[in-house]
Design a binder for these strands. Sequence first.
DNA 1: GCCGTTTTCGGCCCGACTGTTTTCAGTCG
Length: 574
Amino acid sequence: MTVQNADVAHIFEHIADILAIENANPFRIRAYRNAARTIFSFTKPVAELVSEHGDLTELPGIGKDLASKIEEIVKTGELKFLKRLEKEIPRGLSELVEIPGIGPKKAKYLYKKLNIGSLDDLVSAARQGKVSKLKGFTVQGEKKLLQNIDTFKHSDQAKRTLWIEAHDLALSLIEHLQKIPEIEQIEVAGSYRRKKTTVGDLDLLVSCSSPLKVMEQFKSYDQVQEVRAMGDTKASVVLKSNFQVDLRVVDKESFGAALLYFTGSKAHNIHLRKIALEQGYKINEYGIFKGKIKLAGSEEARIYKQLGLGYIEPELREDLGEIEAARRGKLPKLVEQKFIRGDLHAHTDASDGQNSLEDMAAEAKRLGLEYLAITEHSKRVSIAHGLDAKLLEKHIRKIDQFNKAQNGMTLLKGIEVDILVDGKLDLPDSILELLDVRVCSVHYNLNLSMEKMTERIIRAMDNRYFNILAHPTGRLINKRAPYAFDLEKIMIAARDRGCFLEINCQPDRLDLEGEHCKLAKEIGVKLAISTDAHSTNQLHNMELGVAQARRGWLENSDIINTMSLNALLRYLKR
DNA sequence: GCCGTTTTCGGCCCGACTGTTTTCAGTCG
Ligand SMILES: Nc1nc2c(ncn2[C@H]2C[C@H](O)[C@@H](COP(=O)(O)OP(=O)(O)OP(=O)(O)O)O2)c(=O)[nH]1
Ligand SMILES: [Mg+2]
Ligand SMILES: [Mg+2]
Ligand SMILES: [Zn+2]
């Protein structure tokens, strides 16, 4: 198995943790964290770059030293430098800093004083009351520590919360807070606002003339389990679900600056603040300042403007080139929900959907769409009552019948046809030919080698009736990793054959997601944003996919379902 | 450890909350 970017990133993060415990230069530590972030979000495998003798130092934050370390990791699968560090600091010690309230200094202190080298060591020391006797700890703190360790052990740290679940919670929290009439503005910031597929917590920002009231109301939310911190302007609670919510309250003159700060990302903030310094300004969550004079603060856009930058949409704020683009006036004009004219992947009760064809069409029309493709499963997916050729013919007639009635909404004759293990499609060309659009997907035999899976999909694309590759990576967030295949090769093959890839809008798929979209744009393959709705409600998920497209810098022209129906049908012909 | 149309050395974002720190370090956002 070749070394993945995520593996390299994890090694650098681990090094940063150890160096922090060793009290190394904080900027050296940051350099490792920055490099980890850069590599993690780099769209191409660094292993590939190494084998092609590419120049790793062209990546931001990667210099000579880190480049050679990456090369060593890719070539040997390990890093001598890390081995050396691990001899000095036990591996378990970096677990400690995962516990809220324990940072590198306390971890080192516990190690020095009590020889605590792992979470288990810490638990037994705390149970014996040894921790509370140390300087900087209390009996109460010791109790809380044991609780925090317990919840940590019982939660899956790898699991972040789906954006859509955070969304429901956010609505409920907002409703609760808005009972305070003095509240002027309220916004959910953080990764939620940047529309990441998953979030680590919720970050709420409020402007209000009486902050104390807001803090009290926040604390009284009935799901609050624990108050982590509670000050004059800032509070942090953990809910019964072990989900953290942060609240920041500012006055309205600072709302824009605070929104900018709280939306992040952290890397975006640091980069903006660095530019501000270079221009003789200072940015904090209260505004942008020249000396003591506040130049702006109530609106985000005015802060960007003061720096000579165009407004940067939240979805782009990852410090992945958006600030440079803004400076050069080269920001993309991102695709928007209102430009989406149709949906190319939906199911009805003819296979495993919940609603009738008529209901789905009516809802799509209500949502302002011009066309909706009905794409039932094919026969291989028997648990979903996939259609065989005969049933599909019946289905085709039904759609023709529907369209005759001129409903102000055109249904497209489609199919979600399975890509079989040998790369053949699950239905004969003679029937595929009769359709307007064919969505093709892999549902079975997921454990092929990378080469076999890539070959399988490309062979399927060789079929001239192949239009759109559905949920291309096959991952299910928090449940199933993407199957092994070469996404870049697939994108190139699709582009060269006039095929397209999907941004599947199901909340636990979001497949492709933002970073993949960026790669698609670089390669030049166009995408379809499709809900894969199995009910009328799920037709509303379009905006989740649009958000991912936006995170990937995509514009209207990168998305085929921004086209009019006639243009699209011509475009699909191969 | 990285980086550079003000620099190849000397900077590297900025502030809130907590605890016992009597003047600030640690942790976190
Ligand atoms: N300037 C500055 N801002 C920060 C720093 N850490 C966090 N922030 C800002 C930017 C973050 O997006 C925002 C919220 O912090 P979070 O820890 O909740 O991160 P975020 O929501 O981006 O990701 P998440 O999904 O919650 O892990 O606070 C920092 O060290 N400096
Ligand atoms: Mg957050
Ligand atoms: Mg947060
Ligand atoms: Zn489907």
